[in-house]
Amino acid sequence: MERHFEKDLNELKERLLWMGGLAERAVHQAVQAVLNADEQIAQRVLAEETAINEMQIEIDDRVVHVLALHQLMAVDLRFVLAVSRINNDLERIGDQAVNIAQAAQRILRHPRVKPYVDLPKMSEIVEGMMRDALNALVRRDVVLAQSVLSRDDQVDNLRDQIFRELLTYMMGDSSVVYPAFDLILMAKNLERIGDHATNIAEDVIYFVQGRDVRHPAVDRR
């Protein structure tokens, strides 16, 4: 039976995926601005941030509308709650992309500290996590969502490795302190984006199975 609010739920999902696309694009471009030393791409990320913020507000309005008009239950209720949380995570991902783009602008004023090896690796994993978390939402794929969770440790390890390596450079040559520090911040931003992708994957599992996999140490009886 076609339910009259199905259209509202489908539109909500489409909007969220559109916003996910914007956030993915922002992250990809911000990272490329650093790796390819491209000031113009960094500018574009800053200019496009407004679109993500506007989308966050529109999705929030739609969530309130759906909750107010349709007394949703079970999987429908979990879906709308998940959308609301994912909406916040995507907006925060957009903010992190902006941080990276601003760091890129500062980094570009200095000679390259070192060849980038771990940063491209880290960004590839993080972008993959974002993509798969959103694909898991579309396909209701819990296995794919779980695989996103399992990649979070790799990202944390790379962040630590990048920090240690750049610290060595900073101790050896004080002239690289500013760009190296910005690269450390960039690794931190990427790690946070990975955390947001992890949150999205956890929300997908909650939506599909009703299982709350956040904070396993908390007693839920």
Partner: peptide, 18 residues
């Protein structure tokens, strides 16, 4: 029951699928 029903028939009923 209204957030995470265990049975698919319960879920179908409370979400208005029948």
């Amino acid at each position: 029951l209204f957030t995470t029903p265990a049975d698919s028939r319960t879920e179908a009923y409370i979400t208005g699928r029948f």
